[in-house]
Design a binder for these strands. Structure first.
Length: 158
DNA sequence: GCCAACGTTGGC
DNA sequence: GCCAACGTTGGC
């Protein structure tokens, strides 16, 4: 199976790339996704070794900040079963889970962050879902070319 | 199965 | 803080 390429969004006030850098094994489970399209990508399509751009939303400037890889494929999002969790969902049953997550590991923080406006101004990224109007998906596919272009813009040596 | 009301996301 | 865009809910 060919490697796939993704972008995940997080609000840095919630979980930033620095939080990921400090996490055990620089790995985290991507929990709390409560959108069916995003869930389907995680549950059905994200495979170990896929590359993932890490994007900070709701911050100034909104920007891509690093590169990660998938290290564990879909498993039930247990935070949906816990009524003390923000993303608790009583409709998700442990016997038939509605929500899934996967694990990502930090490969490298970008040398320079790549702002949303820089991505919008790059004609090579005009087809990227992220820069298109009204996109609210927190997990979305990108192409290999798009991912490589963003890495290039960041000036990061891998 | 339609669609109005409502809630959330996220750039600005 | 505003508000456009979008997803979900629920009455009918």
């Amino acid at each position: 199976m060919a490697k796939k390429y993704w972008l995940v969004k997080s609000e840095p006030s919630c979980f930033s790339i620095d939080d990921l850098a400090k996490a055990k094994k620089q790995t985290t489970h991507w929990d709390g996704v409560r959108n069916y399209q995003a869930r389907n990508f995680m549950r059905d399509d994200m495979k170990i070794g896929d590359l993932v751009l890490y994007y900070h939303s709701n911050t100034e400037p909104p920007s891509a900040v690093g590169l990660c890889e998938v290290v564990k494929e879909a498993y039930p999002d247990f935070t949906a079963f816990d009524d003390t969790e923000d993303h608790y969902d009583p409709k998700s049953d442990p016997k038939n889970p509605r929500w899934f997550m996967m694990d990502i590991k930090l490969i490298k923080k970008f040398k320079n962050i790549v702002s949303l406006s820089d991505m919008k101004n790059n004609p090579k990224l005009s087809e990227m879902k992220l820069v298109q109007r009204g996109n609210r998906l927190s997990v979305m596919p990108v192409t290999k070319k798009e991912l490589n272009e963003v890495v290039k813009m960041s000036g990061t040596k891998l």
